[in-house]
Design a protein around this nucleic acid. Sequence first.
DNA 1: GTCGCTGCAAAGTCTTTGCAGAGAG
DNA 2: CTCTCTGCAAAGACTTTGCAGCGAC
Lengths: 157, 157
Amino acid sequence: MSKVITNFKDKTVEYEQLLNDFKSLLKKNSLKFTIQREVILETLYNSDEHLTPESLHHLIQETFPDLKTGIATVYRTLLLLEDSNMVTSLSFGAQGKKYELGAKNHHDHLICTECGCITEFVDEEIEDRQENIANELGFKMKDHSMQIYGICNKCQN
Amino acid sequence: MSKVITNFKDKTVEYEQLLNDFKSLLKKNSLKFTIQREVILETLYNSDEHLTPESLHHLIQETFPDLKTGIATVYRTLLLLEDSNMVTSLSFGAQGKKYELGAKNHHDHLICTECGCITEFVDEEIEDRQENIANELGFKMKDHSMQIYGICNKCQN
DNA sequence: GTCGCTGCAAAGTCTTTGCAGAGAG
DNA sequence: CTCTCTGCAAAGACTTTGCAGCGAC
């Protein structure tokens, strides 16, 4: 049975925990914990959306108008977070990537081609099959992504 | 049981057929059949690789040195073919898209993160589940794509 | 204090577009 | 002939990089 994930962040990862992970990561690599990096992590955490670097940047500017965060820092931090597997990126047909927190909370995506909205879900059956397929073909699986494109409930009206 | 697709093009779509489809498509939209468009379709057909616009362009320049095909025409034709569902594009983590012929021969992809090679496969079980999941969530499915990332057999050595 | 980080702007990529001449129908 | 295509080069969109001053540790 597949399961729609509506509030997985609250259930599985507390912000405190996330922040600590981030700090450990930074310390381990002799990197510095800056206000910009914190704000980026926090904004990603508080957003239910899948954000592009640009939309994330806008959101930060709105939420923290006093902090002049440059788009370059957003890009740099997203790369850092992605390399550390703290965020995952989705590439779409068009241009640009969208980022979301939490590779640990694996899930796949239903993407509406009308309004661009994204619904997340997990299906154990598919997860298992993917692993099996990779094995069958001599592939050492590291990750996977699945997108279903279609028209969401709202847009069908 | 999943199935690796090794030579699906030969088995399912003849080039003649493909070319005719393309010509019909063009005629239907009052577009013209040009040598550049033919060469692009033919090169896509003859290649087993998933091609980027740039690699396709290079390949064409090598194969048809007399024909000065511009990269812009390659982009324009790929967009045309994609809009008409004659080719499908894959977006990767990095930048750029790769194109392949034949939306009709649906299959998913195993992508090696080391060498970038792509193995195609079909798994009925997953195909069915995807359809079901979309239905369960009130989604009218139009298309889907699935990629498994990992390390291929060769690169494990 | 040191050394990494930031914002800015410049430089890179990749892709799209405008245009005048070429070519398909 | 007409109207679309093409190649070229310029423009655009998105992302990365260099640098000088700033700030975490």
